[in-house]
């Protein structure tokens, strides 16, 4: 650990607001990105399920 105390870690030598803004924004964006993997995947599967169900209920005669 480069810092001697929690206060020093949060203060970042007076640059705390800048450094912490950048790191918190990054962590939030990464969390949204990682959560999106599962969300997008499920949405795609769900859309295709309803598509396939609709196709099974109303088969088109020329296909």
């Amino acid at each position: 650990m480069n810092f001697e105390s929690l206060q020093a870690f949060l203060a970042m030598g007076g640059h705390g607001p800048y450094v912490w803004t950048v790191y918190l924004t990054t962590v939030v964006l990464l969390a949204v990105n990682f959560a999106g993997f599962r969300r997008e995947r499920r949405r795609t599967i769900r859309e295709l399920r309803s598509l396939h169900a609709a196709a099974a209920a109303h088969p088109s005669p020329d296909k």
Partner: peptide, 19 residues
């Protein structure tokens, strides 16, 4: 954020480089 040493001119604001 926590373990790299600060820059001798920029101090801790230099840590923004890692993002």
């Amino acid at each position: 954020l926590a373990f790299a040493p600060p820059d001798y001119q920029q101090g801790d604001s230099f840590r923004i480089i890692y993002v």
